[in-house]
Simulated assay, not measured.
Amino acid sequence: MGCPPQSSDAELVTRAVAQALLGFRSEARWLRFARKNLAAMFPYPPQQSGYNKRLRAGLPLFKKAIRLLATDTDFWFDNHWIVDSTPVECGRSRPTVRRSEMVGRAGYGYCASRTRFF
């Protein structure tokens, strides 16, 4: 069964939202930052493995929070949906990107880990 968590579900959601809003993709970096700069807000600093387990176990809670926020916006009743998708490769070089028919319409970026433009 294990020990009961020292932080509440509300604190878990707050931590996850703060992590996303502040742009931390790495849990380890986020937890180091939170321990150093946000100790007053989050008195119990979890270890990375515990934080990860709580995040995964809290998925239904996050889905509920996202749904509640979504229904509170005008987009919920709109015909258009906002989606985030996987990047699609569009060219392997800068000249290819510049002469594409999607110039000015699509957002282009470079992924250094894949050495490709998307």
Rank of each mutant, 00 (worst) to 15 (best):
S7Q: 05
S8A: 05
L12H: 11
V13K: 13
T14E: 07
R15H: 08
V17H: 03
V17M: 06
A18N: 00
Q19N: 07
A20W: 09
L22I: 10
G23H: 05
F24D: 06
R25K: 12
R25A: 10
R25Q: 14
E27M: 08
E27D: 12
R29G: 02
R32F: 05
A34L: 00
A34H: 04
R35Q: 11
K36V: 03
N37T: 05
N37W: 10
N37R: 15
L38C: 01
L38Y: 02
A39C: 04
A40L: 10
F42L: 00
P43M: 01
Y44N: 14
P46W: 00
Q47G: 13
S49V: 04
Y51V: 01
N52D: 12
K53E: 03
R56W: 04
P60I: 00
A65W: 01
A65C: 11
I66Y: 07
I66T: 12
R67V: 09
R67T: 14
L68I: 04
L69N: 10
A70E: 14
A70P: 03
T71F: 05
T73N: 15
T73C: 11
D74E: 13
W76N: 12
D78M: 08
W81N: 10
W81K: 15
V83I: 12
T86C: 05
T86A: 12
V88L: 02
V88K: 02
G91N: 11
R92M: 12
T96M: 11
T96H: 12
R98V: 04
R98I: 03
S100G: 03
E101I: 10
V103Q: 10
V103R: 14
A106C: 14
A106D: 09
Y110R: 11
Y110L: 08
A112Y: 09
R116L: 14
F118I: 14
